[in-house]
Nucleic acid binder design. Structure first.
Lengths: 152, 152
DNA sequence: TACATTTGCATCGTGCACGATATTAATGAC
DNA sequence: GTCATTAATATCGTGCACGATGCAAATGTA
């Protein structure tokens, strides 16, 4: 059989793509209770850890551009999860602060990671496998981010 | 530091999400030459391997639903990459066939996987690591697909 | 053979992603 | 100080994803 490389089953990118979608889907029931989506949950995690970041600082942490984040933050502001204010020091920057409602969701989110990992850990995959996978993906992210920068 | 689990850096789902987006982005320059997107490339790969599948058979291979695939296939038909015809045996089914144009793209796509893997393989990550990662993700996909089915 | 159920596909609405482009503020060069 | 350049966001258009819903063909059941 020729063209083995063009077979879906021999590709590594397709499993990453599918796993990403399925994981987002697995999060959905938990996040739905909180009235948020997975990308919104990511924004909240960033702000729970470090409130008062600029839009640009959030883009760097989530590896998303402003053309994705601006409308997303706008929706979250409308949902009263956060405020957006121009920085007085640099009028170009927009600083994002959590509202009380946004802060309070943290308590509700606390059990989510453990619930997810419970689904994923099986007799075939243990925690050290997961950590190894995380490290490997982070190395790829480093490479791909670098590669992307060089194309511009 | 409490709430370590809610820190972005300690999550494994976020690297999968980011890596997926970055990989799609890395594919883009190659696919742009062919005038297609990554999901369209996936459909082509499925059909190159096995032409004349029904929409349902494609959804099973790509783990996508018809509400994603129907418009996608419609766009690809408009681009003259494939034809969609109702099955005469089962009038509910739609059978998808590649056009000559769609078939011919295979030659152009042949070098893509190798180019991508060249970017990803480094001194820190070798081919057996990649295969291990692929196997692990496929196991997760199996679990998550099962988990998703149980919720319905 | 009626009729409820299931199956295969499509449509609709919403929310990402992201390239391209625009806008305004800050910075740099002279 | 003037003007080009850069930086920080925002907007627009297009293409996914996906839950919810609709619809017609096939299947199952009494």
């Amino acid at each position: 059989m020729e063209d083995v490389q063009l077979k879906l089953s021999s590709q590594v990118c397709f499993p990453i793509y599918s796993a990403s979608r399925l994981i987002t889907k697995a999060y959905r029931p938990y996040l739905e209770e909180m009235g948020i989506t997975y990308p919104q949950y990511l924004v909240l995690m960033v702000l729970w850890e470090n409130d008062g970041l600029t839009v640009n600082q959030i883009t760097e942490k989530l590896l998303l551009n402003t053309n994705t984040l601006s409308p997303l933050l706008k929706r979250m502001e409308k949902m009263e999860l956060l405020h957006r204010n121009r920085s007085s020091e640099d009028e170009r920057s927009v600083i994002v602060h959590l509202t009380e409602k946004g802060k309070n969701l943290k308590a509700q989110a606390r059990p989510i990671p453990e619930n997810l990992i419970k689904i994923l850990l099986t007799e075939n995959i243990n925690l050290s496998d997961v950590i190894q996978l995380k490290d490997m993906l982070n190395e790829w992210i480093r490479i791909l981010t670098e590669n992307d920068k060089n194309l511009k």
